[in-house]
Deep mutational scan, measured.
Amino acid sequence: RHRTTFSPVQLEQLESAFGRNQYPDIWARESLARDTGLSEARIQVWFQNRRAKQRK
């Protein structure tokens, strides 16, 4: 699998969602996937990585 590159618009949507809830449930992730055009799995990994980045 190649590395996913996120567009500025996608990142804005993801960061906005992260600001509201750092642990989105499956319904929120699937909604974000539809809105961004990404797969739910990529959304899930993005949130995992974003939480790890915040802990540093």
Rank of each mutant, 00 (worst) to 15 (best):
12 E>I: 09
55 R>Q: 06
48 Q>Y: 07
30 E>G: 09
1 R>T: 11
15 E>I: 03
22 Q>W: 06
11 L>M: 08
27 W>L: 15
22 Q>G: 05
11 L>P: 00
52 A>P: 02
54 Q>A: 12
17 A>H: 15
42 R>W: 11
15 E>N: 02
26 I>W: 15
28 A>Y: 06
10 Q>Y: 00
41 A>R: 10
48 Q>D: 14
16 S>W: 12
36 T>W: 04
26 I>A: 15
22 Q>A: 10
5 T>P: 06
16 S>C: 11
43 I>G: 01
38 L>S: 08
48 Q>F: 05
36 T>R: 01
43 I>T: 02
33 A>F: 00
21 N>K: 02
26 I>C: 07
19 G>N: 05
11 L>F: 03
16 S>N: 10
13 Q>E: 10
55 R>F: 10
23 Y>R: 09
50 R>G: 00
41 A>V: 11
21 N>R: 02
54 Q>Y: 06
55 R>H: 08
52 A>C: 08
39 S>I: 04
27 W>V: 15
20 R>A: 10
29 R>V: 12
42 R>E: 15
11 L>Q: 12
31 S>Q: 04
16 S>A: 13
12 E>T: 08
41 A>N: 08
16 S>L: 13
32 L>G: 00
52 A>I: 07
34 R>P: 01
55 R>E: 05
41 A>I: 04
31 S>T: 10
52 A>D: 08
17 A>K: 02
4 T>Y: 15
53 K>F: 10
45 V>D: 15
45 V>I: 15
44 Q>D: 11
9 V>E: 10
31 S>W: 03
37 G>D: 05
24 P>K: 01
20 R>V: 09
6 F>N: 04
18 F>S: 00
16 S>T: 10
44 Q>P: 03
38 L>T: 10
8 P>C: 04
1 R>P: 14
39 S>R: 07
53 K>W: 06
4 T>L: 12
23 Y>D: 08
11 L>W: 06
26 I>K: 15
2 H>F: 13
22 Q>V: 05
25 D>A: 03
31 S>Y: 08
47 F>G: 02
44 Q>M: 12
5 T>V: 11
45 V>R: 12
15 E>G: 02
16 S>P: 00
15 E>A: 03
17 A>L: 04
49 N>Q: 13
28 A>S: 10
7 S>P: 01
11 L>D: 06
50 R>A: 08
5 T>G: 05
14 L>D: 00
36 T>Y: 02
34 R>S: 06
23 Y>S: 08
40 E>N: 03
19 G>L: 08
54 Q>D: 11
26 I>M: 13
47 F>Q: 00
37 G>H: 05
34 R>W: 06
45 V>W: 11
15 E>H: 03
43 I>Y: 00
37 G>M: 06
20 R>F: 04
16 S>K: 15
48 Q>P: 01
8 P>M: 05
25 D>K: 02
50 R>K: 11
10 Q>S: 04
28 A>W: 05
35 D>M: 12
47 F>W: 06
56 K>I: 10
38 L>W: 03
41 A>E: 12
7 S>T: 08
34 R>D: 07
12 E>N: 04
10 Q>G: 03
19 G>V: 13
16 S>H: 14
15 E>L: 05
32 L>F: 00
8 P>I: 04
16 S>Y: 06
12 E>M: 04
30 E>D: 06
4 T>D: 15
13 Q>W: 09
53 K>Q: 15
6 F>I: 13
3 R>C: 14
46 W>V: 02
15 E>W: 02
54 Q>P: 05
31 S>C: 15
11 L>H: 09
28 A>K: 10
9 V>R: 15
37 G>R: 07
19 G>A: 12
55 R>Y: 14
21 N>I: 04
33 A>T: 08
13 Q>R: 13
30 E>T: 13
1 R>K: 15
7 S>Q: 03
44 Q>V: 10
25 D>R: 10
13 Q>V: 14
10 Q>R: 04
2 H>S: 08
2 H>I: 14
37 G>S: 05
45 V>L: 14
24 P>A: 12
47 F>C: 02
25 D>G: 06
51 R>N: 03
51 R>T: 02
4 T>E: 14
42 R>L: 13
50 R>E: 14
26 I>D: 14
29 R>N: 03
12 E>G: 09
42 R>P: 04
21 N>Q: 14
22 Q>T: 07
46 W>H: 01
49 N>D: 10
2 H>Q: 10
53 K>R: 11
50 R>W: 00
28 A>T: 13
19 G>W: 08
41 A>F: 06
23 Y>N: 06
19 G>M: 14
1 R>G: 12
43 I>D: 01
23 Y>P: 03
55 R>D: 09
2 H>N: 10
49 N>K: 14
55 R>V: 10
28 A>G: 07
